[in-house]
Simulated assay, not measured.
Amino acid sequence: MILSPLPERPAVSYVMPVLNEEGFLEAAVRTILAQEYQGEKEIVLALGPSRDRSSEIAKKIAAEDHRVRLVENPARDIPAGLNLAIAASKHPVVIRVDAHSELTPDYTSLGVSALRETGAANVGGIMRAAGRSPVQRAIARGYNSPYGLGGGAYHGDGTPGAAESAYLGIFRREALDAVGGYDPAILRGEDWELNLRIRRAGGIVWFAPALQVTYWPRASLSDLRKQFFATGTWRAVLVRKYGRANPWRFFAPGALVVFLALSLVALVLLSVGALPWASWWSLLLLPLAGYVAGIVFATIRIREQRGVADRILTAVTLITMHVSWGTGFLRGITLGGGRVVDRSRA
């Protein structure tokens, strides 16, 4: 992928899909408008069929600032909304933003500098999850810990370098055009899938840890479960579609759920006397025992906890993440994605 030279301060287009985000939308847009970047800026919001005041808030912001423009996203899905916003935008650098995220003031300037210095097609930084309520803070701890999500460099600290994917993303428009943008058929995991196609086309995806984004995760365990079930389902779709291009960690939660299910069945049969304890059948309890030990170890190691209640919430959060993701993965690997979507914001 050959990209043209980028000027020192290219004009940038921020694109954001919006659906039921009345509690976050205005703050997210304000952090964009407050970016300490001297180049020309525009924001395009793709409005899905929200059931709250999101569209009203977006129209108010657009009326107050000519740099904010709106497009309709009747399909409601994130990839479709992103493609519509990108098509309506005009500048050579496209910056994906999320209504649940807040950018640091230097995010754009640092990202554009990284694009110019590395020749990358896409640059991303670190996602720092934060919370206000005890449950949301526990979920944030799960996001920020390798014991929760693990894997991607953008969930923790690291050194700059070529990466598998990027959180959100600061893109060269040429790269997006070259690969055809987001795949509207991939309803979750669309970032990883797009970055895979960019890398296969010869583009560089670059991790720049100097880029910092605050992310406000779901605030209830029920919403977290819905989100992670959908995420696991669509990760399985990516496994079905791209096979060995997927990292091994995509398979771990699904395998965990299978082994935990075997352990629980064995525990019931042993407890009722259907199987003898003094036999090799008792070895089937090892996955369950190992997982419980792992959760205890993780809750001891994870920082920013205050007392027993926080540790219990952390443990429940980790289990919800792992089991929801894993069951979703098993659903997706056997039945495909279908119309499984994240209903946690509905």
Rank of each mutant, 00 (worst) to 15 (best):
N20D: 14
V29F: 08
R30F: 01
I32C: 11
Q35C: 00
K41Y: 00
E72L: 13
A87H: 10
I95A: 03
V97F: 06
P105E: 03
G111C: 08
V112Y: 04
A114R: 03
V123Q: 07
M127A: 13
S133T: 15
Q136M: 06
R141P: 06
N144T: 06
L149A: 09
L149D: 05
L149K: 10
G150V: 07
G150C: 06
G151R: 08
A153Y: 07
G156I: 00
S165Q: 12
S165E: 14
F171A: 01
G181F: 08
G181V: 10
I186V: 15
L187E: 06
R188Y: 12
W192V: 12
R197N: 10
I198V: 14
R199H: 01
R199E: 02
L211E: 02
Q212H: 11
W216R: 15
R218P: 00
L221M: 11
K226M: 11
F229S: 04
R235D: 12
A236T: 05
A236S: 06
Y242G: 03
W248M: 10
P253C: 08
L260M: 12
V268D: 08
L284T: 08
L284A: 15
L285D: 06
P287T: 10
R301M: 12
T317S: 12
L318G: 02
T320K: 03
W325L: 13
T327V: 15
G336H: 09
D342A: 07
R345G: 07
